[in-house]
Every structure is written in C-alpha cells, then in structure tokens.
Design a protein around this nucleic acid. Structure first.
Lengths: 236, 236
DNA sequence: CCCCCGGATTGGACGGTACCAATCTGGCAG
DNA sequence: CTGCCAGATTGGTACCGTCCAATCCGGGGG
C-alpha cells in the first residue's frame, strides 16, 4: 500500500483530466479545484507547481492556469539508458566489454570526490538500440560502496541494480556535454566510419545528500542521438 | 522601487550567510530561521525551495537542510550568449553577417508554430569570445512581432532588445543538442580546420504563455565549448 | 563493547485565512 | 463604434496552526 501524498494524487488526476484538452485550454481556477476535490488551496497549488515544473501547464497571474502546448523535449528528467531508449521507442540492449576493480586515478577521483589511489569498479559497456550500437558507456563507482558489483549481472539497468542490491539512489546528476572526434577503436565499436563526430556526455550521479555515487562517460553516435531538454529563466 | 517578495529577500540573505560555509554544513532548522527572521515557516520553506532547485542546498527529512557541495554546472538556467560568456570569464562580442526578412519555410514555421509562408526576420551573427570565434548563430523571429528589427542595432544582446523595444520576454526554451560535422563555409567562419566536429544547439524560446518567440540554431566550436547542466529524478 | 529501541528533533504535508497584484470584462463616455 | 476606466476574477504572497514520517541520539540490555 503505497500511501502517497494528496497533492501527488491530485496531480495525476489533473493530468488525466487534461489529457485530451487542446493547448491553452484553461483549467478550473485554484479555488474551484480546491472545492471540487475537497482539498485546501495550498494542496492544489502544490500539485500545480509540480505540473508547471514538468511543463504540463503554465500559469498567468490574474488570468488563470492553462494546458501547455506539447513539447519536443521529454527527457528533461534524469533517466537511465534503458528508460531513455524506451521513451524513444527503441529496444535497449547491452554488451559487457569490461568489469574490473582499478585505482581511481586523478581525473575519476576528482569527479567522485575520493582519493586518487582509492579503488573503483569500472564497468564498460556497449549499449545497443534496436540491435545496433548507440553508445559506449564507461561507469566508475567507488569500490567500497558497491562490494562484489563486478560479479553481478551487468546486462540490464545499472541504476536498478544499485537501488535493489546496494540501496544507492541517484537523485540528481551533473552533466557536461561536448562534441568530439571518435578515434579508431571507438568508431569500430560503434560501427561508424573513422573521423565522424560523436557526442560525449560526462555525468556524475549524486545521491540525496549530493554525494557522488558514480561517474559515467558516455560516447553517443552523433547520427543517431540528440539531447533534448527545457531550460527556464531563474529570476527575472 | 522594486518591492520584492519576502521569501526572495530571505533567499538572498541565506545565500549570503552560507557563502563561506563548507559543504554539508547544516543550516538552522526551518523553525529557527522562521523565528530569527520574523517570518512564517511557510515563507522559509518557499525560500529553501528556491535554494534547493538552484542547487545551493539539499534537504533530508528528519535530518536538516545542508549547504550543497559546489557544482561544476552553473548554466542550468536559460542564458543569452553574452551572459553565458561572462559566466565563463570570457568577453563576448558579435559580428553581424545578415539581417533580413524572408519567408519562414516549412522547418522554421513548424518550430515557431506559424504558417510556412509567413514572414520571419532572420538574424545571422558570428559570436566571439575574447576576440576569437565561438559560434555561428542564426535567429528567426516572426516578423509581425518584431517590426523594424532588421534596422535596429544588432551588435549586442538580442534578448535585451526584445524586452526593451518589443516587450517580449523569453521565460523558457526547449533545446535540442547534436554533434555535427562542419562544412567548409562554417569551418572558415569559425576559424577551424575543415572536417572537425561542432556542437549544434537548436532552441525555441517561449514567452510566459509558452508561445514560441524565437527559433535559434547555434553552431559552437567543439574545442572551445561545452554544455553543463543538472538533471533531477522527477518522481521516485 | 556493540546493538537495539524509544523519544526528541527535523523536514514534509495539509488545513484554514487574509490580502496583494496582474488581468480581464463590461459599461460608460466620447 | 472606439477607447478608457472601475470592479470582479485569478493567481501570488504571507500568516497561522496541526499532524506525519524520516532521522538522530542517547540509554539500557546483551
């Protein structure tokens, strides 16, 4: 029995109600939703806050709350490769290239906030979408937080494994995106001609205490992949 | 006199207070901040909400609120080229390549949500950082919303011009990032060898009603530029 | 010495109310 | 018919209070 918050329940109800509505259709006023659903206006506003940040509605003071036009960018949220691919209607798969325990080294150590001579588990995988290569993934995790990881089944979602086996939850991540030229090895693995460009995403996954849990470098084929997200003005 | 909200004032005060603090230092409890600053706990929570989404603090139920470790990614927010460069400690500049009124065409029309034969203003600029080329920028705006734009001074911030001259405010934007191979013209303008890769960012700027205001395609030099941002898990 | 458990503490959720600021609308004046 | 202004409407800010759930800490038992 997953007892969930009222505003979360309300959020889903509102989302369902406006599923068929045309963009810019006004929602009921906050006071009306409040009365109709038998919750306080505070709770209504919490639900609407969530819908606003997810890009489902927009609000104009004095005017009302409206259904937002559909967006191209679905992946503003943190997703695993598997989730990401399924959202693009592709079937994810994985081929394990390496899984070993090594010294962190300067760069990885800095990204994970640990000592350079500390041990890390390195998992290298070629990830496939609909059977053909999509990206090269290189994950580093502090060894003391994931004992025995290298001997686990690494064919599926690593995030799921971290949660279920080790109780590690990644709540946010910092990403650095850059365009790079692929070298010979990379091109061969990804199945593209030498010299074409690739999209490199360096990510540091953080738990709810903003402590680094994993550092991942992913190299995407530029011809098959793009990154979509929404940005907002912070303070006007 | 810009009368600002209390929670906004409180946010800035808290940000200043914790400026020198080490990461993971606990802030006072919400009830304590409330009492000390003479505001309600609700208001405190609003201020902390803002600090949390900006990545300045993190909260753990039952434990407290803590100073978040510094992040690599500063540019989670929507910024103009000028702001972006200044944040990277570079001096922005601009060279106007073209400013004309043309038919939208299918692709631009779709991005702006207008008719394909509608008129748009196209502004093409080479943008410089510390005197050398950083990116090629190609902006399209619906002509009827920015009459006479082509004859304005386009050497500075376009966003500022849109706000001051036309009252258009871009509140959010959807971005699609992809790695591409530069062609000869592009390479020449950017001052890089032919065949190296570039980072292409396609952006649609939206006003507070989520209506498209501008569609921009920016081509960055891969060797000088990266994109940094933070993503969060939406619902656990 | 370590482990477990219960109470105190802290953030999270929810209720209610009041007033403000931006917007919209309808009616009146021109 | 057009333009403007006053009042109603709507979201935004702020206050109060109550209870819940996760965490932390210290004391007691092994």
């Amino acid at each position: 029995m997953a007892r969930q918050a009222k505003y979360e329940e309300l959020r889903q109800e509102l989302l369902a109600e406006m599923a068929g509505s045309a963009p810019h259709t006004p929602l009921p006023t906050e006071r009306e939703i409040s009365a109709r659903h038998g919750v306080s206006r505070n709770t209504v506003r919490q639900a609407l806050d969530a819908l606003e940040t997810s890009g489902s509605v927009y609000r104009v003071q004095g005017a009302g709350t409206f259904v937002a036009p559909p967006v191209v960018s679905k992946s503003l949220a943190l997703t695993s490769f598997s989730e990401d691919m399924r959202e693009r209607d592709l079937v994810p798969a994985s081929r394990l290239l390496a899984a070993e325990t090594v010294r962190a080294g300067r760069q990885i150590a800095e990204r994970l906030g640990i000592a350079p001579d500390a041990e890390v588990v390195r998992v290298s995988r070629l990830r496939l979408a609909d059977g053909s290569p999509m990206c090269l993934e290189n994950v580093h995790l502090p060894a003391d937080r994931v004992p025995g990881l290298a001997r686990e089944d690494l064919s599926g979602s690593l995030y799921a494994l971290l949660t279920e086996r080790y109780g590690l939850q990644i709540r946010s991540a910092e990403q650095v995106v850059r365009a790079v030229d692929l070298d010979e090895t990379e091109s061969a693995l990804l199945g593209v001609p030498v010299g074409v460009s690739g999209l490199r995403v360096q990510r540091v996954g953080l738990d709810r205490r903003d402590t680094p849990v994993e550092a991942t470098t992913t190299l995407y084929r530029a011809d098959r992949y793009d990154i979509r997200f929404t940005v907002r003005r912070s303070r006007p």
